[in-house]
Simulated assay, not measured.
Amino acid sequence: MITQAELKKKPLLEVTNLKQHFPIKGGILGRTVNHVKAVDDISFTIYEGETLSIVGESGCGKSTTGRAILRLDEPTSGSVLFEGQDLLAMSKSQMRDMRKHLQVIFQDPFASLNPRQSVSQILGEALAIQNIVPAGKRRERIIELLGYVGLRPDQIDRFPHEFSGGQRQRIGIARALAMQPKLIICDEAVSALDVSIQAQVLNLLKSLQRQFQLTYLFISHDLGVVRHISDRVMVMYLGKVVEIADKKSLFDNPQHPYTQALLSAIPVPDATKKQERIILRGDVPSPINPPTGCRFHTRCPHAVERCKTEAPALTSLHDTHQVACHLVQ
């Protein structure tokens, strides 16, 4: 386990005041009439060699954050520093060169692979675009990559439909590894897999992290998966960060009411233990017109008048735990 003292020395990615607002067009002229505030002014740091997980309900901005970092969607504003270089200030050609250090594993292993390309073509395309391996040695490199993810050399000329879901995701992992990246964003990378296969892929990711000194941004809605793979956890609600903590602190002593509600929904594998479930009232507000003040106040069982008017800042409780809540500051 990486200590906080070690992590502090090696920031790999620093996200500051990141916003991703999607315009809503309306009227005959198609003018912008409003915005979906998918990610609204968030800041966090990922340290070299760690796994930072992002959790939250569907629509909270988890995947949008990952896409904004990679500039798959151009962010509205903010800064994303990767080893001190601002990704958002780079030209397209500069960003293309930088992408070999920043890779992604998508949720659906079938949709993310070209069904008309063989494994050799899928992995070889990435090597050719970045010109990492000479043409004569690419097949040898592809076989090596397949070995890293538990696939056989004789599978190199097969097509995606000839593999199981777990094997297809292993191909996706091999494609990410091909670039020899420093940061991999795992966007719901195991949620489409059976539970038994999830465990195998998670263990593979952890093994590869140790072998190649990888850093992960792991996006998931499954708290059991997050607990298994994370070093730190960031909780998002309606485009905002509400809590960041090391895994032990967050699961043993959650501070934000939203985090407490999420954790209360984790099944307890012991029939003799009764767990008090925190039921949140109401629905998640629209990201088009989010509530004033604390965005969670409309569903929070502990909300006070101040929560309705004043947005809480993300404040450090101690070295490894930050929370945005008036009640605990």
Rank of each mutant, 00 (worst) to 15 (best):
V36K: 02
K62S: 01
S118Q: 07
A68T: 10
D40P: 15
G59L: 15
P115M: 03
G84R: 08
I46G: 12
G84N: 13
F44C: 04
G49K: 13
R99G: 00
V133P: 02
N131F: 07
F44R: 01
P115Q: 04
V55Q: 04
V104Y: 03
D97N: 09
F110L: 12
R116A: 10
G78W: 12
L123A: 03
S63P: 07
S43E: 03
Q94F: 04
E48V: 13
D86M: 09
T76F: 06
G61Y: 04
A68S: 12
H101C: 00
D41Y: 09
S79F: 13
E83K: 09
Q85H: 13
L88V: 01
G61P: 12
L52E: 05
V39D: 07
G84Y: 12
D41M: 03
D73V: 14
G56H: 14
A68E: 00
L81D: 11
T64P: 02
L52K: 07
P75L: 00
I132C: 05
R96S: 06
I69W: 06
V55K: 02
H101K: 07
Q121G: 05
T45D: 15
D40N: 14
K37S: 08
P115E: 14
A89K: 14
I132K: 04
V55G: 06
T51N: 00
R71A: 03
E57G: 02
M98V: 04
